[in-house]
Amino acid sequence: MPVRLTLGRFLALGLEFQLASDVLRTAVAPSFEELGQLAAVAAIRTALNYFLSKEIAEERRQVSEEQARRGEAVDPAAAEHRGRTV
């Protein structure tokens, strides 16, 4: 499961870089058509990033609960994300 968390974080980061790339490309010579396309792409990527972040948080919570059941050390980042400290 930690592999899924790492992959999810890299996917979210990749979406952010792609969006920044599109914004910079449009900033050079914007037309109304390009601005509309950018707005649509930004909305789609923002929605994807939101749901991906929710999925990562859920996966992190499940991993933390599984570790706690086994008596293993809990990942501090996961505990902090839930608002608890270890």
Rank of each mutant, 00 (worst) to 15 (best):
L15W: 07
L15M: 11
L15E: 08
L15R: 11
L15H: 10
E16L: 15
E16R: 10
Q18P: 01
Q18L: 12
L19P: 02
L19Y: 02
L19W: 03
A20P: 00
A20L: 06
A20S: 01
A20M: 06
S21N: 10
S21M: 08
D22Y: 08
D22S: 01
D22A: 01
V23S: 03
V23I: 13
V23H: 09
L24W: 08
L24M: 10
R25N: 06
R25C: 01
T26K: 02
A27Q: 04
A27C: 04
V28W: 02
V28P: 02
V28E: 05
A29F: 08
A29E: 12
A29Y: 03
P30Q: 12
P30A: 05
P30T: 07
S31F: 06
S31I: 05
F32P: 00
E33G: 03
E33F: 04
E33K: 09
E33C: 00
E34Y: 05
E34P: 00
L35T: 02
L35W: 07
L38S: 02
A39F: 04
A40V: 00
A40W: 04
V41L: 04
V41I: 02
V41D: 01
A42N: 11
A42H: 07
A42E: 06
I44S: 10
R45V: 07
R45P: 00
T46I: 09
T46C: 11
T46S: 13
T46V: 07
A47G: 05
A47K: 11
L48N: 15
L48F: 15
L48E: 15
N49Y: 08
N49E: 10
N49D: 03
Y50M: 10
F51I: 01
F51V: 13
L52D: 14
K54R: 15
E55V: 01
I56V: 15
I56P: 01
I56M: 15
A57W: 08
A57F: 05
A57S: 14
E58L: 13
E59D: 13
R60D: 02
R61C: 02
R61N: 13
R61W: 08
R61T: 12
R61V: 00
Q62S: 03
V63P: 04
V63T: 03
V63M: 09
V63S: 05
V63L: 11
S64H: 03
S64T: 03
E65F: 13
E65W: 03
E65D: 14
E66A: 15
E66M: 12
Q67D: 14
Q67V: 00
A68T: 06
A68H: 11
A68I: 10
A68P: 03
A68W: 08
R69V: 01
R70N: 10
R70T: 05
R70G: 12
G71H: 07
G71Q: 11
G71S: 09
E72Q: 14
E72R: 07
E72F: 11
A73R: 04
A73E: 15
A73M: 12
A73W: 12
V74K: 14
V74N: 13
V74T: 13
P76F: 14
P76K: 10
P76G: 13
P76Q: 12
A77F: 07
A78V: 05
A79W: 10
A79H: 09
E80H: 11
E80R: 15
E80G: 09
H81E: 15
H81M: 15
H81Y: 08
H81C: 09
R82M: 02
R82G: 01
R82D: 01
R82I: 01
